[in-house]
């Protein structure tokens, strides 16, 4: 993934993002993944954690919002190339002068950004339906955390999308990958509850560091150093993800343009 391309073709990126949002707003499955499912998970978690006190309401809002972000990344961003294959537009897209990675970046940016709505919906739900008084403890740092989270998720999605299109065997596990990340990333409960051997897996997941940063800045419970550390790791993982994505895109485009096998395997 070439960052210079993203900057050079920023208008294309934004146009693709806009078209993607317009298109996805009409897709009821995406509306479910981004709005309804996180809202239902928030309702469940608010009932389940009710006896923990009001402090946990904001934790649930952020956590259930993160479930929406991950589900959207997995099912929408993950299939951002596949849908082009299914609709027969993949060949055209790889043939246009605009680098294909720019188009996929724009699509993923839209998917991840719109799934932030899940956090807004959960917030409204906790405030209106459950009557919690909610506030963000460190608003500026929270905004910075959100921006870094979006970047980290988009970068992570750029790895998943080409893998899903090239390796159908991996894509078969798509449904099974949703809840494990909810668990391992500590969206709604601390990973200290999990067996010790799972901790290294959590540490290499960008969603885990996103959860640390977002939970820490909303509740104010985490020391600043911890939030900065989470930001740093989100950036590092994003750079690593973009590098891996660049290799994957190169390989995928080779299969499309030279082998011409991507649509037939």
């Amino acid at each position: 993934m070439n960052i210079r391309n993203i900057i050079k073709y920023w208008r294309v990126t934004l146009t693709v993002a806009e078209m993607t949002v317009r298109h996805q707003l009409n897709d009821s499955f995406i509306v479910f993944a981004v709005l309804i499912q996180p809202m239902l998970i928030a309702i469940l978690a608010l009932f389940m954690l009710k006896e923990k006190g009001t402090d946990y309401a904001m934790f649930v809002v952020v956590g259930s919002g993160l479930t929406g972000l991950w589900s959207s990344l997995l099912f929408v961003s993950g299939n951002s190339i596949n849908v082009e294959r299914w609709s027969g537009t993949l060949e055209t897209l790889v043939g246009v002068p605009t680098p294909f990675e720019v188009i996929v970046f724009g699509k993923n940016l839209a998917s991840v950004a719109q799934s932030l709505l899940s956090m807004v919906v959960s917030y409204a739900l906790a405030a209106l339906f459950f009557g919690y008084s909610l506030h963000v403890d460190q608003p500026l740092m929270f905004i910075a955390s959100v921006l870094l989270t979006v970047f980290a998720f988009v970068s992570f999605g750029l790895i998943i999308a080409p893998i899903f299109v090239m390796y159908r065997g991996v894509q078969q596990w798509q449904n099974a990958l949703e809840f494990p990340v909810y668990i391992l990333a500590g969206f709604l409960f601390p990973i200290a509850l999990l067996p010790f051997w799972t901790v290294p897996i959590s540490y290499v997941l960008p969603p885990y560091w996103a959860a640390i940063a977002l939970h820490g800045t909303t509740t104010g419970a985490a020391p600043l150093e911890e939030t900065f550390f989470a930001w740093g790791l989100m950036l590092v993982f994003s750079i690593v993800d973009l590098f891996i994505a660049s290799r994957l895109f190169k390989f995928m485009l080779y299969k499309v343009r030279v082998d011409a096998t991507l649509d037939t395997e």
Partner: peptide
Amino acid sequence: LAQMLFFVFLGTYAT
């Protein structure tokens, strides 16, 4: 299994 584990862990945390 993953869904069950998620809600069991969440419930364990809650109680």
